[in-house]
Design a protein around this nucleic acid. Structure first.
Length: 657
RNA sequence: GCCGGAGUAGCGUAGUGGUAGCGCAACCCCUUGGUAAGGGGUAGGUCGUGAGUUCGAUUCUCACCUCCGGCACCA
């Protein structure tokens, strides 16, 4: 028999019971003033519920307080409503659209002819604070769908009306009132605007397309951040400041890693000597690791005729995103946007036996893509980049194992660099948007199944995402976030069932007949540009010894030891490191500055080792070792230090200093 | 590409309808110093580029280039 009571479980394990029709607010108040104050919303039988909404019989109630993790989202959602209220107060002709809670805050999209200015933002924020201060009560009404449409149309809220039209006919919609202002909303909302608190701030204005589609009108989005209290807000703002210091664009300038010039063009980086060290070390790492995994290196041209990209279908799918072709003697030559077709031609240049597969072809290869100007961002998103590319041509029965091997290669790199903040995404086609993908439903399914079973077998956790596949097949993307919070695919592992058709790629089987191959496209180190950008932020510019542009700086204290300093430098430059590119990367600060100043200089350059040399060291053939962390290791024999730095470089230690 | 903002010395910045300062860096001099900024001096700018308005533009207007914050895109 259904109970006519509402039961609530308390944190101490006790249960309480109330008559049906009671509200969450009343329950909270009856338990104690502390809870009444902290209560923000509720869950009734697992459903989000307003505190002011009567609860029917036979219900399980959970009160959500300011301390609960859900509180942040609730505060942000209410703040978005108050933002819309404030905007319509000040700019009455503005139409509202949607305004969700997001990570760290909220936004609301408005339709208004004039853009909001910084001054407008300040006025709006001030008005929001007044609305919160006024503590306006919230009310919820349920309207028939058609009535709601007519109502909002009459108000001139055409976007709102359109939203409601998306709700199936016959259904009711809920409308939330804060004072007299009201909005279509699923809720829940607080009993009054005062519950939001004042720990919020409007941050910026931006354009955003209606329904996220660039074919639609552009709206004006106002972003804000909101927290449970001032302390959280301050902490967030502090985190932003700290993130700014790690921004690869800033560190790239400070450490002279790369630069750009308007005369070269947007998105075309110029790598400076310090940045080039990182590129070379990454490439050498790839060379070593790929050799272990049976890859062989090739080199291919940066341009090709249109015939190649017509055949690969890239011109069909990406013409607008390619640099316009060079027209020479009636032939069109494109800067290559990727390397797959070139590698396919190498595979196709010879006949391959089933015994010989998989064939693995690798190249750190330069590509050019005419990316939309607005999307360019430092080294993260560029128009010229060098990819850690390779293509694996294998039999169908080898595809899963090869895919797993590539996943393990990714893991080796990520472990080596201590990269943990990422997730893997199985990128699948969007069945609702098929013109972006090759129309081969069966092959899509098979390929996705191969990847799924490879992921399952290797045990790496991943999520699935529709609409993120390449046109030629599904893939696993490694997603990271830059310090400023933008998400990027940093590495990729793709399964291609198309190339075998477009390029006639095959192998000769035991039966003497030709069979199709799978092609795995993979770039575990992504491109030099994006990967270095990520590593700069990951290490905040304090690279481990193997990547550090300068591994050690010699700091002579007086001119009396200049000769000894030069000897030390020479000895270190001569020390062979196994990659054979050079000796240790060392320099000497011969400036006339004081030692303290020289140390500061080395420190701001984030040089891992400082080798201080004075009379004592010159006499004893030692160097006084200081680490970038500030740790002083004292005087050590020169050979001991050299052995240590060399070992760190060769083993690619990610040293805890 | 779209919406908005910005561009002043290598870097960070101030400022104005009458052709520009400051800090750091650079260079020189003094200081020879023991683990994060010693002192003094010198030099360095077609104020992103082009056009327009004006007696006069770095300042106002327009176009372009580049960057920044979003959106869209991302093989």
């Amino acid at each position: 028999m259904p109970s006519s009571r509402v039961t609530i479980s308390l944190p101490d394990g006790k249960a309480m019971s109330f008559a049906a029709g009671v509200t969450g607010a009343e329950i909270a108040a009856s338990i104690g003033p502390g809870l009444a104050k902290a209560a923000l919303a509720a869950e009734v039988n697992g459903e989000p519920w307003d505190l002011f909404r009567p609860i029917k019989a036979d219900a399980q109630l959970r009160i959500i307080t300011r301390k609960d993790p859900e509180a942040l989202e609730l505060i942000r959602h209410d703040a978005a409503h108050v933002l819309a209220m404030a905007v319509q107060d000040i700019f009455p002709k503005t139409q509202v659209t949607i305004g969700p809670a997001i990570e760290n805050g909220f936004y609301y999209d408005f339709a208004r002819d004039q853009p909001f200015t910084q001054d407008d933002l300040a006025r709006i924020e001030a008005r929001m604070r007044e609305i919160v201060e006024a503590d306006l009560p919230t009310r919820r009404e349920v309207w028939p769908r058609d009535e709601a449409i007519a109502h909002f149309e009459k108000m001139g809220e055409h976007y709102k009306a359109e939203l409601i039209r998306g709700i199936p006919p016959g259904e009711d919609v809920s409308i939330y009132f804060h004072g007299s202002w009201h909005d279509l909303c699923r809720g829940p909302h607080f009993v009054s605007t005062g519950k939001i608190g004042q720990a919020f701030r409007l941050t910026n204005v931006a354009g955003a397309y209606w329904r996220g589609d660039s074919k639609n009108a552009q709206l004006q989005r106002i972003y804000g951040t909101a927290w449970r209290d001032e302390k959280e807000l301050e902490a967030y703002l502090h985190r932003l400041e700290e993130a700014e210091k790690r921004d690869h664009r800033r560190i790239g300038k400070e450490l002279e890693l790369f630069t750009f010039s308007p005369d070269v063009g947007a998105g075309l980086p110029l790598w400076m000597p310090n940045g080039m060290v990182i590129r070379q070390e990454l490439e050498f790492l790839a060379l070593q690791e790929e050799r272990k995994d049976g890859y062989r290196r090739v080199a291919t041209p940066h341009i090709a005729k249109d015939a190649l990209y017509l055949r690969s279908r890239h011109l069909h799918y990406y013409k607008e995103d390619m640099y316009a072709p060079l027209d020479i003697d009636g032939e069109k030559y494109y800067l290559r946007p990727m390397n797959c077709p070139h590698h396919h031609l190498i595979y196709g240049a010879t006949r391959h036996s089933y015994r010989e597969l998989p064939v693995r072809i690798a190249e750190y290869a330069q590509d050019y893509r005419y990316e939309a100007s607005g999307g360019l961002s430092g080294l993260m998103r560029v128009r010229g980049f060098c990819q850690n590319d390779a293509h694996i041509y294998c039999r169908y029965d080898q595809a899963k194992e090869e895919f797993i091997n590539v996943m393990r290669l990714h893991a080796r790199y990520y472990d080596l660099m201590g990269i943990k903040e990422y997730y893997m995404r199985l990128s699948l086609p969007d069945t609702a948007n098929l013109e972006k993908y090759i129309d081969e439903p069966e092959r899509w399914l098979t390929a996705a199944e191969i990847i799924r079973s490879a992921m399952k077998e290797s045990g790496y956790p991943y999520i699935e995402a529709k609409g993120e596949a390449a046109f030629y097949g599904p893939k696993v993307d490694f997603m990271i976030k830059s310090v400023i919070g933008t998400e990027y695919a940093i590495s990729t592992n793709q399964l291609d069932f198309l190339a075998t058709q477009t390029f006639g790629l095959a192998y000769v089987g035991e039966d003497g007949k030709e069979h199709p191959v799978y092609v795995i496209h993979r770039a575990p180190l992504g491109s030099h540009e994006r990967f270095t950008a990520f590593l700069i932020e990951h290490y905040a510019g304090a690279f481990p010894v193997w990547l550090a542009p300068v591994q050690a700086r010699i700091v002579p204290i007086t001119d009396r030891v200049s000769e000894y300093a030069r000897k030390v430098e020479k000895r270190m430059l001569d020390e062979p490191v196994f990659n054979g590119t050079a000796g240790l990367r060392v320099d000497t600060d011969f400036s006339g500055e004081r030692m303290q100043r020289k140390i500061r200089e080395a420190q701001t350059r984030k040089i891992p080792y400082m080798l201080v040399i004075g009379d004592r060291e010159a006499e004893s053939g030692t160097v006084a070792v200081r680490l970038r962390s500030g740790r002083d290791l004292g005087a050590m024999p020169l050979e001991t230090v050299i052995a240590r730095i060399r070992q760190e470089a060769e083993n690619r230690h990610d040293v805890a200093e």
